[in-house]
Design a protein around this nucleic acid. Sequence first.
DNA 1: AAGACGGGGAG
DNA 2: CTCCCAGTCTT
Length: 390
Amino acid sequence: MTTTSATDDVLARARQRATPLRRALIAWFAREQRELPWRATRDPYAILVSELMLQQTRVDVVIPYFERFMQRFPDARTLAAAPEAAVLAAWSGLGYYRRARFLQAAAHAIVDEHRGAFPRSHDAILTLPGVGPYTAGAIASIAFGLPVPLVDGNVARVLARWFALDGDQRSSADQKRLWAIADALVDAANPGDFNQSLMELGACICTPRAPRCSSCPVARECDAKKLGDPERFPAAKPRKATIDVRLAVLAVFDAKRRIGLVRRAAGTRMEGMLDLPGLEIAADDDAASELARHARSAFRIDARTLELAGRARHTITHHRIAIEVWTATLGNGTSAKGSSVREPAPLGIAARPDAAGLTFWDPARLRAEGVANLAGKALRIVGIAHARHA
DNA sequence: AAGACGGGGAG
DNA sequence: CTCCCAGTCTT
């Protein structure tokens, strides 16, 4: 009731201001927009790749990944035909690795369900794996010029300031309101540029902290500025408590100086990526004995002479992980026969994410494999570089 | 509706 | 250190 009338009110204000906002924003965008690699094309596949990479990830981080990825997988058919390991390798260091599998699944859907032609309707785009309301709006408006809105973190903040919305943006009611406002504002004649200009404003001018209102092309239309404290909008999200985790991992080498790695299992984080064997332990656990026991029970490996090679810290979402990297030698009687230790299969076969065993890898071959940054830090401690791409 | 997911860069 | 980013999917 109250919500409905408040929504009606803000929608009326949005419609009132729509024309000046569109004009000012699009003119500003034409003048000031950053040159970004995915803005040089209207290829919907390229837009899809960029949008998946940009989910929860900053532009500056994405740029080199996008360029490498497009060079390696220039179209949906190439991506669909590629080994999953190659796709994960291209994603190494970018995070949210699930997105890489979604993207390849989307490529499969384009090839198998749309005969290789990128779907052109908003509804069809929305059915692609990894594509939610935001990404569908982005592809539909930017690549196909469809007059649909989009709301991402930037747009939500800009709208909250323009209309002085201080509700909880995560609530479904507020989400619905933001999308309704964006829908009322979107420029049907130029939806792609309008949507991008909204995001560009949020990224470059209307920043979370210290917004550059003096450079804002639409400052006159901003309710939050009139109220004197634009930074107050939107309301801050309650933060989650950080959880401390102690992680012990084992670096075990075979006679050829290959390192034993596991493939992250389905249903776990970093699924499909290579990782060092290891386990979470309690603060008062003895890491060496826990690792030895784990190696025996999980891999039938007789890990001996454990030594602490080094430590690293890694923070993911609200987990603060203290990593301990231990080296070990293999005791007598540990061999491929009678254990779950296996020779690495050729690329593509070794990439099966359900492979639970330990496989031994020549460090030089790891470049062609997905390794998350968490494992990358541990590998660096034992002298194996798997940088966030060279 | 809430939680999981990876990581980094800015302030 | 804290915040939060061109979000989506699962439970």
